[in-house]
């Protein structure tokens, strides 16, 4: 460790030399890394916004369970408590006839007058069950099997659409992040291999003198880290600008999209990009370094 610290200035000088030895190629590598990390930042931002949207949609996922009309209030509440304990059920609420009527009035709004044509309240009490949309099939089947339940209205089409959206966003996001990560690692490792090739005689000599792989390789790790971290900073700054302008534009024109607080989004995206930059720089460098042969 003492030796390592004593040589820190040497490692950074060597890293600088490796970068300048193949300046043009490294500039393009750097620009490539900025663009890739910018794509990643865009995906992370999109994911963050859509996750919030999805969470809101998930919270709206519900089924309605209609029970026998001859059940008294205590029995209904006992049934609701039972349903609340089911796996995948987030929350249960009993909606009585008058609340059902009021809800319909709200839905019909200006046309609510049509309800006055009925002599009595035509709506039945039911149990509103908020659920995990991913478990709709099993929950509906279980609820249907209760002897006190007459039938279940499940909005399956809507819930399945929500589920598909969630799965789609997760899959596309994961694929893009995977592609970006692999591409970055390949670009950085190729750059490191190029550096190793350009310095092969020096590496051989150091090996014959007894230098460890760590000593020989650390300047190359510094190069990989330096390029991805600076690229990460640049990509984060550009993304901040995009988010700022995006909020100004979207906040006014598409008010129904629930955007997360700007500060939180910027901090989150910056942290993710910087973390990923460090990890990818490190991984790319180590992958490139694996091409140094022991002898």
């Amino acid at each position: 460790m003492k030796n390592f610290i004593a040589n820190l200035d040497y490692f950074f000088k060597e890293a600088k030399r490796i970068i300048f030895l193949n300046k043009l190629s490294n500039i393009f590598t750097f620009l490539g890394a900025v663009l890739i990390l910018l794509i990643l930042a865009t995906v992370v931002t999109g994911w963050s916004i859509s996750s919030r949207l999805v969470r809101m949609l998930e919270e709206e996922a519900e089924i309605s369970a209609f029970f026998h009309e001859d059940m008294d209030e205590n029995e209904v509440f006992a049934l609701a408590e039972d349903l609340d304990k089911l796996d995948g059920v987030w929350n249960v609420r009993v909606v009585d006839e008058s609340e059902a009527y009021e809800r319909m009035e709200e839905i019909l709004a200006n046309d609510a007058g049509i309800l006055e044509l009925f002599d009595d309240n035509p709506f039945k009490a039911y149990i509103e069950i908020r659920i995990d949309p991913g478990q709709i099939d099993s929950i509906v089947e279980t609820v249907k099997d209760y002897k006190d339940i007459d039938y279940v209205r499940d909005n399956r089409g809507v819930l399945e659409s929500i589920n598909d959206i969630i799965k789609g966003i997760k899959t596309v996001g994961t694929l893009i992040i995977l592609a970006v990560s692999i591409t970055t690692i390949i670009i950085i490792s190729h750059m490191i291999r190029q550096g190793i090739y350009n310095n092969r005689e020096q590496i051989k000599t150091l090996g014959f003198l007894g230098a460890s792989r760590m000593f020989i390789g650390f300047p190359f790790i510094c190069v990989g880290l330096l390029i991805t971290v600076i690229a990460g900073v640049l990509a984060s700054l550009v993304m901040m600008l995009i988010i700022h302008n995006g909020y100004l534009a979207m906040g006014g024109s598409i008010p129904f999209i629930p955007l997360p607080p700007k500060g939180n989004l910027v901090t989150g995206v910056t942290l993710v990009i910087m973390g990923v930059s460090i990890i990818l720089g490190m991984a790319g460098s180590l992958f490139g370094l694996s091409s140094i042969k022991e002898h």
Partner: peptide, 29 residues
């Protein structure tokens, strides 16, 4: 070792070359 083909590292001074050969040994700065 003193190599027949010298194996000095170009782009560095004489001093840097000598230092490079001993940096990874147990010496202080």
């Amino acid at each position: 070792p003193v190599f027949q083909e010298l194996k000095l590292v170009p782009g560095r001074s004489a001093m840097e070359n000598v230092m490079m050969g001993i940096r990874f040994l147990d010496f202080s700065r």
